[in-house]
Each structure stands twice: as structure tokens, then as C-alpha cells.
């Protein structure tokens, strides 16, 4: 099984760390994983994205030309990446910032008001973790517990930040679960 996904949004929304945390969790679960950040001039230009590939066997290319999942944290990402999605793929949008406009009939939309939830929690910068929590619940690519373990190792020196992020992940995870 090989699954590829793209996380995209504005620079500063933490899309790279979403991908990184997921990749870390996949590694901890013993899977093959690659993480490829978009790079260069685009990196400074305000938009950011990264590609994660998770597989049971060696991964040939870290590039995703037709990913199974796309997470769009802002409007331009939704517009730009929607048509790359594989038929039957899931499009996650940050519905607080993105006016979801699906132009394809063969994909599924998952709306998560990540920015609003994060703001309500008092930590607007945690929208990425809210989204990652929801993403994890919906895709079931890695265990939620592993995600937490990974986060604990990367943020071990920043206890306060860790707690905030954990809470955001959990809230996002539960949000998706609450849906009918």
C-alpha cells in the first residue's frame, strides 16, 4: 500500500510541520516514509506545501502527481491542488478560510473549520494541529497515540507548546469523530 498526500497553505500556517509530524509518526510505526518540502523561490513567496508518502514497501518517488489526500489550508491551495487529487481522493479544507468550491464530482470534501476551532481554543496558531487531528481520524494512516509520541519527542524541550499542540490535535480528532 502506497499513499501520498499534499499539505498546502500560507507560509506561517504550519503546513510543513503538519507533514513532518505525520511523517514522524509513520516512521515510528515502522513504515516507509518520505517527506518533501516545496522549495526555493516559492518558499519565500507566501505559499508553502509539502508532500508525504507512506508505504509498506520502498518508496520510489517522493513526488505526488496524483495524491490520495490533499489538505488545503487556504484558498489558493484549494484552487491550485484540487485537480491533482486522485479520483476518489479526499480534499480537506480549512473551511474557516476557504470557501469550498468543488469543481469535480469524483472526490470527497472534508470541511474542518480549523482556524475557528483554534481561535476558540485561544491558540489561533494551532489550526494546523487541529487539521492534522481531523486528518488522522479520517484517514487512519497512523495511530493517534503515535502522533502524540512523535510530537512529544520533537517538542520535548517546549512543554507548554507541547500541551497546546496536543490539545489541538485532540480537538481536531474529536471534531471529525463527532460528524455523523
Amino acid at each position: 500500500m502506497l499513499v501520498k498526500m499534499i499539505f498546502a497553505g500560507f507560509g506561517g500556517q504550519g503546513v510543513l510541520s503538519m507533514g513532518l509530524n505525520l511523517a514522524q509518526a509513520a516512521m515510528l510505526e515502522g513504515k516507509h516514509v518520505t517527506y518533501l518540502p516545496a522549495y526555493g523561490a516559492e518558499m519565500r513567496g507566501g505559499t508553502a506545501n509539502c508532500t508525504v508518502a507512506i508505504s509498506d514497501e520502498e518508496i520510489a518517488s517522493p513526488v505526488a502527481s496524483a495524491p490520495e489526500f490533499i489538505v488545503a489550508m487556504n484558498q489558493p491551495s484549494q484552487v491550485g491542488f484540487q485537480h491533482h487529487l486522485q479520483s476518489g481522493g479526499l480534499l480537506f479544507v480549512n473551511s474557516s478560510l476557504v470557501e469550498a468550491k468543488i469543481v469535480r464530482g469524483d472526490i470527497e470534501l472534508v470541511e474542518v473549520p480549523a482556524s475557528r476551532i483554534a481561535e476558540e481554543m485561544g491558540n489561533p496558531r494551532c489550526a494546523n494541529m487541529v487539521m492534522l487531528g481531523a486528518f488522522t481520524k479520517k484517514t487512519n494512516l497512523v495511530c493517534f497515540a503515535t502522533l502524540i509520541t512523535g510530537l512529544e519527542s520533537t517538542l520535548q524541550s517546549k512543554k507548554k507548546l507541547l500541551e497546546v499542540n496536543k490539545e489541538a490535535l485532540k480537538t481536531g480528532y474529536d471534531f471529525c469523530g463527532a460528524e455523523p
Binding site: 513532518l20 511523517a23 516514509v33 518520505t34 518533501l36 522549495y39 517522493p62 513526488v63
Partner: peptide
């Protein structure tokens, strides 16, 4: 190459 340099793997 640039991809090998940028990509992360275990």
C-alpha cells in the same frame, strides 16, 4: 540532487 538533499527519510 536537489530532491535527495531536500527530502526527509528515516
Amino acid at each position: 540532487d536537489s530532491m535527495l538533499g531536500q527530502m526527509m527519510e528515516p
